[in-house]
Design a protein around this nucleic acid. Structure first.
Lengths: 159, 159
DNA sequence: CATTCTTTGACTAATATTGACTATTATTAT
DNA sequence: ATAATAATAGTCAATATTAGTCAAAGAATG
């Protein structure tokens, strides 16, 4: 597996194409079918490329709209200098998250000056037991994990 | 292919046109067929734009009259105080909440200076589709409603 | 060979656009 | 006054135009 450009697959080419645009622009807005046509692949392959290569972990956020004039927009975000705390918290959460552990995490965020008091209470409201309760404590813990990870990912970048 | 806005759909253009007028005026009074002619669309598309983009949740009230000299008037409403904004938003949510409506609500919170940009994005992260998805779109909308109400209630006494 | 990554396409979902039909109000004719 | 007509706006369902999901097939990797 020499790092020869010739043996790149099409997904890699599409990735490279988009990243070249993103080297000069904060964001790129595409019509899915256009890019698919440009590389002669089915439209859903664009989703594959986005899902595997433009994730939030890599510092991209993706927004889209369907219908007439629809689009996919990929935006580069500036990651914070010190995201180690966030990354290790995300790593530690896994699939499920208890109420108790979630409170520990929020406390850690606050202690590390990653969020302020007001943000503490917004986050606690978002994962409040009564809000996300599903009459199934396993599902509740899964939901809490998902929401917390989503918020932690958001805190990884500026703006 | 950077951040150009040239390829919006017509409904977005009409929305933008009306909001530009509303930036300088408390209200805008139009003749439906005139605006339709201006953008070369059927008159009922104006209703579509109004119903999807100038709802009460977004801070507009719409009044109209048929017959000769008929019109549509869009008015920006000024909600009395913060509690009123929160109460009417909570009232409007009900049992389920779509992604689109949730974005409108967050926008309204921001427009009324109840939350800042960072809080906007934390809240959006908390109700992100991928975070709260349960492979059942009805349940997703219920979950989104619950979380949003929980957050709005928190803001209600958080100041 | 087993596993993981890529490619494909059928099906689904969201949003926009159109137009036929309806409802309301104003104006004109009787 | 009343009835007919004209001039508006509203509703709703059909169609068009996008993007998303998912699982199966194929390719690459180790």
């Amino acid at each position: 597996m020499g790092d020869d450009m010739a043996d790149e697959n099409i997904s890699d080419l599409i990735e490279r194409y988009l990243k070249e645009i993103l080297a000069d622009n904060e964001q790129v807005k595409i019509r899915r079918s256009e890019i698919a046509g440009l590389f002669d692949v089915v439209p859903s392959q664009i989703n594959y490329v986005i899902n595997t290569r433009f994730t939030i972990q890599n510092g991209y956020i993706v927004e889209s709209k369907r219908g007439g004039g629809g689009y996919i927009r990929i935006e580069k975000v500036r990651l914070l200098d010190d995201i180690d705390v966030l990354d290790s918290l995300i790593e530690a959460i896994g699939n499920k998250l208890s109420k108790r552990d979630s409170e520990t995490i929020v406390q850690t965020l606050y202690n590390n000056d990653l969020i302020n008091r007001r943000e503490v209470s917004i986050i606690l409201a978002a994962i409040d037991k009564d809000a996300i309760d599903l009459n199934n404590s396993d599902l509740t813990d899964i939901m809490r994990a998902n929401i917390m990870i989503s918020i932690l990912n958001r805190l990884r970048y500026e703006g």
